[in-house]
C-alpha cells in the first residue's frame, strides 16, 4: 500500500486509470439505465414504481461503501500519519454525502406511492439520515481549523466514531421492526429478487462504484493541486 502512498506515483497511476474508468462509468450507466428503465419487467406488486429501486439501492450501497472508505482512510491517517490518506478522507466525504442524498431522496419518492408516506422515523431511515449528517459533519470539521492538520485529525476521529453507525444501518431491518423492508440481495438465504431484475441492478451498482472511483480520483487530484498551491504561496511570501 505504501508504494502508492507517494503522491507523484499516485498521480501517475490515477491519470492512467482515469480515462478507462471514466469510459467504463459512461458505458455502465448507459447500459444499466436502459436495462433498468426500459427492458426490465414491472414488479408484480409495485408495478413501474419498482424502477426507482435501480437508482436507490446502488446509491445506498455506494453511500455505505463511501463511509467505509472514509473510515479506512481516517484510520490510516491517524496511525501512520499519511498525508495522502488525509486527502482521500477529505475527498470521500462530499462524494459519500452526495450518494446518501440520492438514496434518501429516491427512497422518499418510492415511499410516497408504496407505503403512503414520504418519511417515517424508523430505524433504517433514521440511521441513514444520521449517516448523511456524519458526512456533513466531517466536511465541516476538517475545514473548521486554521491549522489544516488539526482539522484532519478531528475529522478522522469523527469518521471513526461514526463507524458504529454502519452495522446499525445494515442490520436495523433485522434487529427491529421497521417500515423499510429487509435486505433483498445481501441476505443469508440468497437473493429474493428475480434474475431479470437482478442483472440491471448489478450493472447499475457497477456504474455507481465506477463513478465513485472517478470522483475520488478527480477530488484527490484537485486537493493535491490545492495543497501544492498553498505551499507555493507560502514560499513566495517568505522570500
Amino acid at each position: 500500500m505504501h508504494r502508492f502512498a507517494n503522491p507523484t506515483r499516485f498521480l501517475r497511476l490515477a491519470n492512467a486509470v482515469l480515462p478507462w474508468l471514466g469510459g467504463l462509468t459512461v458505458i455502465l450507466f448507459g447500459v444499466g439505465l436502459y436495462q433498468a428503465l426500459v427492458i426490465s419487467p414491472a414488479d408484480y406488486q409495485q408495478g413501474e414504481t419498482v424502477r426507482i429501486m435501480y437508482v436507490h439501492v446502488p446509491a445506498a450501497w455506494a453511500a455505505l461503501s463511501g463511509y467505509t472508505a472514509l473510515a479506512i482512510a481516517s484510520f490510516t491517517f491517524l496511525v501512520w500519519r499519511h498525508p495522502l490518506a488525509d486527502l482521500a478522507a477529505r475527498a470521500a466525504s462530499p462524494i459519500g454525502a452526495g450518494f446518501t442524498a440520492i438514496a434518501l431522496v429516491t427512497g422518499a419518492l418510492w415511499g410516497q406511492p408504496m407505503w403512503g408516506t414520504w418519511w417515517v422515523w424508523d430505524a433504517r431511515l433514521t440511521s441513514v439520515l444520521i449517516l448523511f449528517f456524519l458526512y456533513l459533519g466531517h466536511m465541516a470539521l476538517v475545514n473548521a481549523f486554521d491549522d489544516s492538520d488539526r482539522g484532519s485529525r478531528a475529522g478522522a476521529v469523527l469518521a471513526l466514531v461514526g463507524v458504529v453507525n454502519l452495522p446499525i444501518i445494515k442490520f436495523s431491518v433485522d434487529w427491529w421492526n421497521t417500515l423499510h423492508q429487509p435486505a433483498s440481495v445481501l441476505r443469508m438465504d440468497g437473493p429474493k429478487i428475480a434474475g431479470e431484475m437482478m442483472t440491471p441492478l448489478m450493472i447499475m451498482a457497477g456504474a455507481y462504484f465506477a463513478l465513485f472511483g472517478v470522483l475520488m480520483i478527480l477530488r484527490i487530484r484537485s486537493l493535491l493541486a490545492a495543497r501544492r498551491l498553498r505551499q507555493l504561496r507560502l514560499a513566495v511570501q517568505e522570500t
Binding site: Q46, M114, W115, V120, P182, I193, A194, E196
Partner: peptide, 18 residues
C-alpha cells in the same frame, strides 16, 4: 388514524408471481 403499507423484500415480474 394512519395506515401505511409495508412492502416485503420480494421483487419479481407479474408472470413469475402468477
Amino acid at each position: 388514524d394512519e395506515v401505511l403499507a409495508k412492502h416485503d423484500e420480494t421483487y419479481m415480474p407479474p408472470e413469475v408471481a402468477k
